[in-house]
Each structure stands twice: as structure tokens, then as C-alpha cells.
Nucleic acid binder design. Structure first.
Lengths: 235, 235
DNA sequence: CGCATCCTTCGACCTGCGACGAAACGTGCT
DNA sequence: AGCACGTTTCGTCGCAGGTCGAAGGATGCG
């Protein structure tokens, strides 16, 4: 007989994350991209059979979702709550020792700019957040009329983000920078536009992203108060 | 060779939470009270030896801290980050099936009012949060001058909370109510005052709290705009 | 000083589960 | 149809770690 009060069962979820191989898989998926089972196996450094077993368990547990496309099966995190769990765990987990030179290069790229499931993090993330604040776009967890104008001009659907079922514009603080960046529905919407415009592109290392030349110019123009040139979204 | 980029090691932390017995211990400690090793063993339904082994590992992992007092050893969570991890995990963990009548009573009490490590949660938590908003005390993640006056009169050290290293007034949404309540440094400061004044007291079931008669009257007076009677803090 | 209480350490047992290779399954290409 | 490739299933091995009882400190009480 359990004397502890009825509570959410946290152990099963934690157990799914507790295995190093599964943790590597989940961390790889934290980039926000859906990845094929084979790629995940390679990234985690295990055989295809082993990865498959892990993915099957993660699927059962509702941590990942799968979409079949031809003979590939692309896995992604099941939702932003899952990404939040991983981020919070990373925050208490502490930074690991960096071993090889190659890893230190990758680590530097991750610190520079990366995606945190569906929004921008790292130095780029906090930089963007700071610039939005300075420009008077944000007040607490709300967007000012000024911000509405600026983001609207960029092509961000602020109203749509506000109606989303998840939190609108929470500060999300990550484990590399010790400062906050913009998460939530608004952070995701802005990041989506940045990718769509080609201002940021995904880098070779799983979660990293890079700013493009257009991105550098576009962002500079955006915050210098100039109007943007007309925007032709990619279908 | 690991192909995954250098990242925080989340697996070891997750592994500590992954065991059902350790999860029960951590959940019990989520009430914010320090508990003796024996009590924790009883609550988790294991022998003293087993609990001791688990507590030792949790201590190593930095998830709990211990204070020796006579022949007792009181364990508590190591910090609010740990409580945050548990809350987030509980949110994705889903609600467990309620088995006995007794558990359903306890579950109802937990939903009514409980502590979430160091701040008020459950219906009481979201109620307080809503009333503070309605009274115009909060704007986004900031406190208005009006709020400063009202909370100051209550005896809350708003300035002290603002200087704390943790987030000031984040919304913390929990797994029973699907709404937000007040967490962070400010939430903790307010809750501390509520206990100090005797407006809330801890209930018999681990994480539950109960509002007292004084509490009901005091809160009503507070939000009806009246000034409070002078406050004599408990040493 | 000796006993009771609380907690930890030790030794032994046993279950759970993560690892792989080989083979089966399903899909796309020619 | 037949082959190639990505993925899952199956069978098996081996080890990590959770559990308990009993014994060994440590602390408070009379």
C-alpha cells in the first residue's frame, strides 16, 4: 500500500529519458527537425536494431511521434512539453566535460546559435530577445503595439500565436547562456519566419543554426527602424 | 565515439528520478518540508536500508540536501530547480489512476491547496494568482505600484524577491488545474508570509495545506481594499 | 553507563533491460 | 519481377542496480 498521495507518475517518463542512448536520441531531436531512424542510430552510436527498440519505447511512452515517408520513418518530439522537460533537465544536469577538439568546436557552435525545439536559443536567441526588448516590443509577457507593428511587418502572425493553446511569450532560460531568450508560441512563430525568409539556416551539426548574409542585413534593417522590403514567402 | 554534439548530460539526472521509490521520495519532498529518512522510507513503502541507499544516491547527484539534527537526518530538495524538474515531468507524466477511496480524498485535498516546493499551488494557488491580477497587482512578469503597496502592506519583501537570483514572478502551471499560478521568488515570498501569519497551515497529507479562519478573513479584507491590522510576525 | 532509537553499511539474491547479429518485413527503383 | 535499402522483430547474452535482513556506528535519554 502506497502511503504517498496520488500524484502524477513521473518515474516512467524519467525512465525513458534515463538511458544514455535514448537521451542522445531525444537531444538530437531537440533541434526540432524530424530525423530518420537510421540517422538517429548513427548519432547515438548504436546499431539500427538497438535504436529501433529505443524508438519503439519512446513512441509507446508518448515522447516522440513518427511519420512514415516511403521506406523512411521520421521521428520527432511529440510536443513542446517534451522539449521543455529536456531543457529543464539539462539545466540541472550541469555541463559535461568536453573531450575532443571536434567536440569543443561543436560546443562553440551550439553556444552561438541553435534551435531549442522550435525557437531560437544560444547567443543568437538571447541577442534577438534583448533587441526586441530594447526596441520596446515586449512588456512582461505581452507584445506592445510597437512590437505588434514591427513583428507584423516581418510577417509574424502575432494574433495566431496569442490564440495558441500553449503559453504565449514565456522567457525560456537555457543552460549555455545564463540569460533568457524568447520561447512559447511567439518565439516559435518568429523563428519560423526567420527560417522561411532564409535569414537563418540549419547547420551541419544537429541542433546548430547559422545566420545568413540576408539575415544579418535584414535584422539590422529591422531594428534600425526602416521598413522591410516586400516579403515573398516560400511555399 | 559520440557523434552527438556536446550537451548537458541529462541521462544521469533522469536516472535518479527514474526509479519509482526515488520518485516517491522526491515527490514527498516536493511539499517543501524537510523529512527524516525514516519517514521517507515509510512513505515510499520500502525498508530503511533501501531508502538510505536511495537517499545516498540522491545526495551524490545533488538532488537533495541533508541537515543532521540529533539522531535524525532531515532531507529536503536541493533547490527550486529540482522542484521545477519534478513539476515539468509530472505535467507530461499524465495523471495516474486513482485506486482507493482514501486516495481519492487525498487527491481532492491536493487539488484544493498544496505547496509546490516553496509556493502555493492547486485551486488556492490559481485563485490567489487571479485575485492579484484582478486587483491590478501584476503586469506580465512585473509588479505594479499598486501591487507593491498591497504586498508591502501584507509584509512581503518585494524588493528582496526582485534581487533574488531566480526568476522573479514566472507563471507556473501545474498538472491538476490547467491554469497558471504564481511561482518564482515572489511566489515563494508571498507564500512564506501566508504561513508566517498563520493564514495557511500544513495539512496531515504530505503536500497539502489548509486555509485557516484568519486566512479567509485576511485575504477577503486584503482584496476588498481595506488596510490590514498591524502585523506581528512569529519569530 | 546502558538501553533505545535512528540511520547507514555489508553481503547476497534476483530481476530487468540494453546490447548485438541474423533474419524477416515492407517499400522504392529499374 | 527482382534487387537494394531502411527498418523492425527475434533470440541470446551479460551486467547494472534495486531489495532485504542483519550487523555496525552514532546520538539522546534516564
Amino acid at each position: 500500500m502506497e502511503h504517498v498521495a496520488a500524484d502524477a507518475d513521473i518515474a516512467p517518463v524519467a525512465a525513458l529519458i534515463a538511458d544514455p542512448t535514448r537521451a542522445a536520441i531525444l537531444t538530437a531531436l531537440l533541434g526540432g527537425q524530424a530525423l530518420a531512424a537510421g540517422e538517429l542510430a548513427r548519432m547515438a552510436g548504436v546499431s539500427a536494431a538497438t535504436a529501433s527498440a529505443h524508438l519503439s519505447r519512446l513512441l509507446d511512452g508518448g515522447l516522440v511521434a513518427v511519420v512514415r515517408q516511403g521506406r523512411h520513418r521520421y521521428y520527432r518530439l511529440a510536443g513542446h512539453e517534451i522539449a521543455e522537460v529536456l531543457e529543464v533537465l539539462a539545466r540541472v544536469g550541469g555541463r559535461p566535460a568536453v573531450r575532443s577538439l571536434r567536440q569543443s568546436r561543436q560546443a562553440r557552435m551550439l553556444e552561438e546559435a541553435r534551435t531549442c525545439y522550435d525557437h531560437l536559443a544560444g547567443r543568437a536567441g538571447v541577442g534577438l530577445f534583448d533587441r526586441l526588448r530594447e526596441a520596446g516590443c515586449l512588456a512582461g509577457e505581452e507584445v506592445t503595439p510597437e512590437g505588434e507593428r514591427l513583428l507584423g511587418g516581418l510577417g509574424v502572425d502575432v494574433e495566431g500565436a496569442r490564440r495558441a493553446r500553449r503559453r504565449f511569450a514565456p522567457e525560456c532560460l537555457d543552460w549555455t547562456e545564463r540569460r533568457a531568450h524568447l520561447g512559447g508560441a511567439l518565439g516559435a512563430a518568429i523563428t519560423a519566419v526567420l527560417f522561411e525568409r532564409g535569414w537563418y539556416v540549419r547547420g551541419p551539426v544537429p541542433r546548430t543554426v547559422n545566420v545568413t548574409e540576408e539575415g544579418r542585413e535584414g535584422l539590422a534593417a529591422l531594428f534600425s527602424g526602416k521598413e522591410l522590403t516586400s516579403h515573398t514567402p516560400v511555399t
